[in-house]
Amino acid sequence: MHDKLIVIIVFLITILTMTVGYSTFATDLKIDGNAEIIGEWNVRIADIKPISVPTGCDAGTPTFTDTELNFAAQLNKPGDEIIYEVTIENAGTIDARLQTVVFLEEPEGTEAINYETTSLAETLDVGEKTTFNIIVTYLDVKEPPVKTTKTLTGIIEYVQK
């Protein structure tokens, strides 16, 4: 058969097969949505655990989902410091880079509690994990604090590298 006809036939068979496939999937997938999945974006929190808890303090049981984590630290006396280690992993198929890191302490919270966080990895390639620490410290203040709690909220944003 002539080469040029082969080109036409291969082209038509390809388009036809894709059209049939699209008909097949179009009946099962949401019609108005984008059903295309090429790469998988999945940067998520993998773990949080207390790694340093002085005697008399309680690090509680931190919990986490892919995108949120919660912890409740109870400090006993000035100088006490609880350290949590947070693990973030890139479980998708797209390399990531850090775009935004913001941690905010509650403005009205007690001045006796201080939060510190260590730095995060600038890049997180596929399959990689990174950790950072959240350090909660009971500061040595002159007067006993009126308020005894302070919250910390944070946003960590990774984007495609």
Binding site: T14, M18, Y22
Partner: peptide, 11 residues
């Protein structure tokens, strides 16, 4: 574009 539009337009 979904996968079908992207692929078929390219071809």
């Amino acid at each position: 574009n979904n996968w079908y539009i992207k692929g078929s337009l390219e071809i």
